[in-house]
Write a protein that binds this DNA or RNA. Structure first.
Lengths: 344, 344
DNA sequence: TGTTAGCACTCAAGTTTATAGAGTGCTAAC
DNA sequence: GTTAGCACTCTATAAACTTGAGTGCTAACA
């Protein structure tokens, strides 16, 4: 947060420069500002103001004879105190709603579609971090017999995340046994989080070891195998849109960015730091948790089931991104997803 | 297939040029060939041979004073008749085996891991086209009660593909009802492909319309909702490795390539054409089904369950890729995946 | 007849130099 | 406080030049 008191005029000029720069990706000159924005000021006056804005660290000049470019600090000030947030249009709302509603109900599909929607409405790259499966609340476990010793284990969390694994059992279970086992597990594990489930199963296995109810021991055994290896899921959509930005013509940098996109677990870890605050957060340039994203900004929002934050979604674009339109899009989409997940 | 009779010496020289070019990505000059490969020939002689190889369309010169570069045809000849296929190393085999075995048994996890493995062992981009769900054989359907009117429908195919959807039912089913319904459906739909299932359900719905067994009508209704929207799944891994190739420094081209990677359904469609032949296929440069992949080659292999081809996997890299090591990797991985899927 | 040394020629890539234009900062006048 | 005017700076683009790798051809050689 940049706390500066600027004269009305300085603010107007800063705003003009930021917006011109957002539109053109070119350094903005004093005469352009004087001309385009009806400030009825001469370029010389604008020049004076620009010089002082530069002194404050809000603008920078790539070299003497170019115009000025907003610094990260300049963008920050713009976002905090200048940007007039466009409210989301009815058409956009309808589009987001339609796309998210049409998904098949399971969490994966919904989040993937949210990512696509964010990207296509913002024209930048959409990103959605799925909730860690282990943080979800246990809802139900079921076993389906696939073959002689093959069992499909299905684990469902309250937020609708479904994990399935095919287990090679060491014996041939009867379908009735499988039902009994899942009934037992469902009542034993009710109300726990998946990570608690993991612990509980281990504890129970210890207890049941000498029990005479063999089946329950086996149930625990199966359920343990059903627990998936922890996997970080991120849905990134519209990566190639990054190429559309004229400022990203440096192949080396592009490579860094794309590499970062591929290291999902690192990505999840770093983005995890954005999840402490609720609602929309904006990271400009160097504020971004990812170092390789030089010259890029990140707009995120958390999403939740009920009252608990479970994940993060947002948009990655150039620092000069269209904040005024992207912010409400991210905000609305995250709220919608939260609502859809909570309604369940 | 290029059918040419070349003298032993011409072949040696072509091979030398191709391999030098694979190693360096630079045009290869006559003296380099004479020097590096113990042919005991002068550069002038090599030059004569190179001129005739150029005439045959196997080599090309970017300009007069550069060395020669193999053409697509040159690479084709190299691959068809020159390349000495390295057999896959024990270490590689173990690595592939280990990674694929460790997946959780469901199809998605296995294929995703196969893609990662292909990429990391080849150092190029790995690609796996998942079988279309509708072409799979119906194995089983189950309903799990999640809430008052919420039902989780799980559809399993013989190859271990699992689809789940959460359905909003229009009434509150008892768990016993759900079991009866799935039993009914499982016996009715046995032995059909998923696309046949779709038709059968429609037909049955027509028949059952006036039936007095309300529950079965409802079962059909539910199962229809359980059928997922057709979705093309492709797992692409190691995209950013493309940047490592010196010949891909053109940002515009990179953009095209990455865009193509994002249009999954188009990708699947085009790659579908590679599935007619069984086993490993090699597409060099312009032979590739994707026009945007100028200067790139594609090595693919089909994979199967039992005797039926269900999908495709492979590696995308520059035309000058290390064919001799990549081909056996793709071959082995596809065979392994087939085996794992068939053992089920 | 096949091979090779020698040499003139070509062409891209890198370097230097020249030119134009955008935009600034400063000064002096309003 | 604002503005016109002007010298100055610096990049981007083009043009001219230089370098060197590599060729193709010729003539001599085995």
């Amino acid at each position: 947060m940049v706390d500066l008191t600027l004269s009305q005029r300085s603010r107007q000029i800063l705003e003009a420069i930021v917006e011109d720069y957002i539109a053109t990706a070119e350094p903005v000159g004093s005469s352009a500002v004087a001309r385009r924005h009806a400030l009825s000021l001469s370029s010389a006056t604008v020049r004076n103001v620009m010089a002082s804005l530069e002194e404050l660290g809000l603008l920078a000049s790539p070299h003497t004879s170019a115009g000025r470019i907003p610094t990260d600090k300049g963008f920050r000030f713009y976002v905090d105190s200048l940007v007039g947030l466009r409210t989301i249009t009815h058409t956009e709302k309808k589009e987001i709603l339609k796309r998210c509603r049409e998904t098949g109900g399971n969490l994966t599909d919904l989040l993937r579609e949210a990512s696509r929607t964010l990207s296509s409405l913002s024209n930048y790259t959409g990103i959605v971090v799925a909730p860690r499966f282990t943080t979800g609340m246990f809802r139900q476990i079921e076993f389906i017999k696939l073959g002689a010793r093959r069992v499909l284990a299905i684990l469902v969390t309250c937020s609708g995340a479904v994990q399935n694994r095919i287990i090679e059992a060491d014996q041939d279970f009867m379908p009735e046994d499988l039902v009994r086992m899942s009934n037992y597990l469902n009542s034993t594990l009710e109300g726990l989080s998946i990570s608690q489930v993991r612990e509980k199963i281990l504890a129970e296995m210890e207890l049941e070891k000498n029990s005479y109810d063999q089946l329950m021991t086996k149930a625990l055994n199966l359920s343990q195998q059903a627990l998936p290896a922890e996997q970080d899921e991120v849905y990134i959509t519209g990566q190639s849109r990054i190429f559309e930005q004229p400022e990203f013509s440096d192949i080396k940098k592009m490579r860094e960015v794309f590499k970062a996109f591929e290291e999902k677990s690192r990505l999840v870890q770093l983005l995890g730091n954005c999840m402490h605050a609720q609602g929309v957060q904006i990271f400009i340039g160097s504020e971004t948790p990812l170092k390789e994203m030089v010259g890029m900004s990140l707009i995120t929002s958390t999403y939740m089931t009920g009252t608990s934050t479970i994940g993060l979604m947002g948009v990655i674009g150039p620092t000069r991104m269209g904040y005024s339109s992207v912010i409400p899009i991210v905000d609305y989409t995250a709220q919608l997803v939260s609502r859809l997940l909570t309604e369940r």
